[in-house]
Computed example of a mutant assay.
Amino acid sequence: MQFIDLAAQYQHLKTRIDKRIQNVLDHGQYIMGPEVQELEEKLAEYVGVKHAITCANGTDALTLALMALNIGEGDAVMVPTFTFFASAETVAYAKATPVFVDSDPSTFNMCPVDLEKRIKTVLAEGRLNLKAIMPVDLFGLPANYPEIQKIADKYNLKIIEDAAQGFGGEINGKRAGSFGDIATTSFFPAKPLGCYGDGGAIFTDNDEYAELIKSLRVHGKGTDKYDNVRIGMNSRLDTIQAAVLLEKLNEFPKELTNRNKVAACFTQKLDGMLRTPKTPEGYISSWAQYTVVSEKRMEIMSLLEKNGIPTVVYYSTCMHEQTAFVNCIDLGLYPVAESFAKTVFSLPMHPYMADASVNKVIDAFKKDFC
């Protein structure tokens, strides 16, 4: 059994993907070819925003968003502590300070209550210029943007949505990638919408941000590519990756339906044996991972491995505990996030998961834990 079966997906889309790649090989425009513009238009349409700007990877997407908002030394950005390293890394790379926020115990995402508490602490200390909030759509579920937006408006802060795992998720019909001032995503192969290499994208309704990001991703170029009007970076999506993503995006709605069917089956059968993930009313998750909670994590993972069922832990070390952030601003304890780091693990999840594989996971739990 595969944890994420990319080979099954490729076999399903093989004829279409191969044809797309062959078209790129035929026209030879490997960098910023026509497929890139086509993909950007279709991504913007799918997400429901005016602008989608592709780039080399999801980490660069966050960096470009921070650059567009002119966030740098002396500034602070609120970031969840229970997430992948890139979220806080890009803030530090911009020479700004990541300020960590505890998790919501019901969703794994940034806790709005803890967020406001820590914003007040930072403002009271007066050492940093608080500029933005960077929520993460963890495991495929959008963060609580209705509440986070209220807090951002109250304190005049920008929102950068990190939808690297959340592409395809929704809140009341509004799709991930459309929240806040700027949103980003990743096309890393294991993501809900992934390419066959690396890639990323930035989403916004702001025309000024969009034009700035388009310049920044290509060395800060002006109207003439040899007239660079600002310091930027080299972060372009390869045309072949855009070609792959075009076919995957066409299939994505069906895949999202399949992911939700697998998740619903797991939740129905496993709830009670361990803590299963819950989707709040009005939300849709893209199920980047199906993550459960148990105090017996290591015992369960070991038994599942013996049954040929792979599992993965995301994330065993919180951001505030990482060596790189040992000297970061200390705002006290993070009890919920630290508990998750010790108890969460993820089960196999992908849109081509056969019923037999789903049942195998469920039967293993029934056999060993009932």
Rank of each mutant, 00 (worst) to 15 (best):
Q149D: 12
F187P: 01
M110S: 13
A88C: 06
S87C: 14
A94C: 09
E116P: 10
L212A: 05
N206P: 00
A94S: 15
A190G: 15
A152T: 06
N172K: 05
T107R: 00
D205L: 11
I151C: 07
I160V: 15
F179E: 05
G177E: 01
F188Y: 15
F167Y: 12
I182W: 02
G200S: 04
G199L: 09
A96R: 00
G199M: 06
S103G: 11
A86F: 13
L212Q: 05
D162E: 15
A88V: 03
I159W: 04
L123F: 09
P105K: 01
V113A: 14
P98A: 07
F100L: 13
Y209N: 03
T81Q: 12
R118Y: 11
A176K: 04
P189K: 03
E208N: 08
Y93C: 12
A164L: 08
Y145K: 04
E161W: 07
A92C: 11
Y155H: 01
I133Y: 08
P142A: 06
E170N: 02
T107V: 00
Y209A: 04
Q149F: 09
A152I: 07
N172I: 02
C111Q: 08
D181P: 02
V99R: 03
F139N: 09
P135F: 07
A190K: 13
F85H: 15
M110F: 12
K191R: 14
A210M: 05
S103E: 08
F139V: 11
L115W: 12
R127L: 09
F139K: 04
F139E: 07
T121N: 12
P146N: 07
T185H: 03
E161T: 09
I151T: 10
L138I: 15
N172L: 07
Y209I: 11
T184D: 01
K191N: 15
N109L: 08
T107G: 02
L115F: 14
G166S: 05
Y196G: 12
E147H: 10
L193F: 13
P146R: 03
P146Q: 07
G173Q: 01
R127Y: 06
A183C: 11
F179T: 06
N156M: 04
K131E: 05
E147N: 11
S186W: 04
Q149S: 14
D207T: 13
I151L: 09
T81Y: 13
N172C: 05
L193K: 06
L123H: 07
K174G: 01
A152W: 00
G197H: 01
D207F: 12
D162G: 10
I171W: 01
D162M: 11
F82D: 05
Y145F: 15
F100R: 08
Y93N: 15
T107I: 04
E170L: 05
K117I: 12
V101H: 09
A190Y: 14
